[in-house]
Amino acid sequence: MESYRKNQRVFWVLAGPGSFWLLFFFLVPLGMVWILSFGEKAVIDGKISITETEITWTLANYVRALADPVYLVIMWKSIWISALATMLCLIIAYPVAFVISFASPRWRPWLLLAVILPFWINLLIRTYALIAVFRIRGYVNFTLEWIYDTLWLDGLFGPFEPLELLYNDFAVVAGLVYVFMPFMVLPLYASIERLDRSMLEASLDLGASQVATFLRVTVPLTMPGIVSGLILVFIPCLGSFLTADLLGGTNATMIGNVIERQFKAANDWPFGAALSFLLMYVTFGALALRALLSRDAEARI
């Protein structure tokens, strides 16, 4: 690697366009939202304007976001829904990553591909596909009804009552798990694959059971992957808007939906800006935590 001083012309030619683009079409817009978050709706002729905003450097938007029970409830709900979905992802993805890592080398890339491929498919389409699975006349209810009728339960308990699977917290959690699972499998696979198998052999040879080996050798050794996976899934879950919008309906609103509403229907941009920056701070906090924890975990190994 050479110093940039040695060939400044090439350095600036390479650095220029990308930096320019990111500065003007990313950082400046974010800065505008940041400034906007300290604004309030302008008052013109004694009436609160719908479209105009004024930057007054007020903290009212942040106070409102963090003190108004309505939004506090939604924020807590977003956090626990995301946490629950993340934990479910971990529980499902760990065995999956395990099978892939321990499969024969010929099979491994194909199994990995099988899990990653859905990630390529449009997020909107995958979420939309779940509506047909969960709705009242959907595949789940259809299957359940078929089982119910085959077992002659309709004669005993009356006709089948379809389950309300859509437009509630369950649907949102299921949707998030479905959509973000690949994010969990990848880091887990990376760390399980690197796992020193002789450690597992040693543990088993020394008389530890499979469960004890798993809990006391495998899990601690793959902790960096677990931490990475947890945070890589938690961040997009928390910031998701589409899943709650399509599957949660009005009953299961997440912070992303509140932000969207402020910028579209409610037309309260300063408040939406404050919410989106709060979301961004949480994201950065999670990333910092990841850096800290993975360094810790690496150090312990």
Partner: peptide
């Protein structure tokens, strides 16, 4: 350079709208 990858999509979306 990694910022657009890590920040929530919705934050970037509203930033573009505002911009």
């Amino acid at each position: 350079m990694a910022l657009p990858i890590v920040i929530p999509e919705i934050c970037m979306g509203v930033a573009m709208l505002a911009f």
